[in-house]
Amino acid sequence: MALLEIKNLTVEFSTAHGPFRAVDNIDLTVDAGELVAIVGESGSGKSVSMLALMGLLPWTAKVTADRMALDGKELTDMPQNQRRRVAGKDMAMIFQEPMTSLNPCFTIGFQMNEIMARHLSLTRHERDKRAVELLSMVGIPSPESRLRAFPHQLSGGMSQRVMIAMMISCNPRLLIADEPTTALDVTIQAQILELLASLQQDTGMALVLITHDMGVVAEVAQRVVVQYAGQQVEAREVIDLFDTPKHPYTQALLAALPERAKTQQLPSIPGVVPGQLDRPDGCLFNPRCQYTVEACKRIPPGIQNGVRCHTPLDAKGNPTDPNGLRQDMKVSS
């Protein structure tokens, strides 16, 4: 049985212009000890879906799912107070901005102690001891004295290490890392990624890594889910996905990697992710796709063989036509 099972997760925000669907029928399974990456541009709903899983969205969000289960425990109909016992213990999350994610008014020791006091039955002394162990585990020098430090005395990289130490303190089965390196210096980014990957190996927890950086994905992930405008467009093993992307969006993302670029100028994907008011009919990617046919503009594609596309790409990167759409309709310019 998979550790995490999500079926048909949809998140809608009520706005002045009516409901906005930030996450659109997402499925996700993560096995114990697996490292899955969720990739996509800003606004593709990757953070929102995981925040929904953790129960961290504001009350304006309407979350629906056929199934959202961790370790077989259904979360959708779990009462609030029980759900809070799952967050922080069985699944934990670290965030994009480490500098603002720690409370400026309390010491590192206090903030680490607090989560253990909530979920573990340890004495105060044992908690302090464990905090020191955890801090040295995540590579913080002189951890004893760090316990008395306040967040503003730490750098961004150090803060993120503290966040990681804090969030793995209760031995979660699943850790969600929401763009954990985006706000950090490039030199620190690699260190944090390595730390996460090695912690995942050592503790055997599953790790969901949210990122927009395909390079990061290639380095650490086993499986990749590509999201676009709140939908999943492709979900496959990392090696397969990098070798033979099937969705035009994945192909375009990979082509934008500096090490893969064939020209002097880095290729980009024209346009932006559609927002609430400019969602196209048919395939959501069609205005930006270079293989668009008439059908793409009218019929929303379903998921076939792990890819949401009318014209999935073949091994050579050329569009195919499994449903015979092109015979009936001429290719649009």
């Binding site: 967050a87 965030f95 603002t100 994610s101 400026p104 008014c105 607090e114 989560i115």
Partner: peptide, 26 residues
């Protein structure tokens, strides 16, 4: 709406502690 309040919620703390301690102290 600060990040650290979200962190406190992610830690699974009680509502009373999140509002009365983490938010109110700031």
């Amino acid at each position: 709406s600060e990040d650290y309040v979200r962190t406190a919620r992610a830690k699974g703390l009680s509502t009373f502690r999140i509002i009365g301690l983490h938010a109110f102290r700031n």
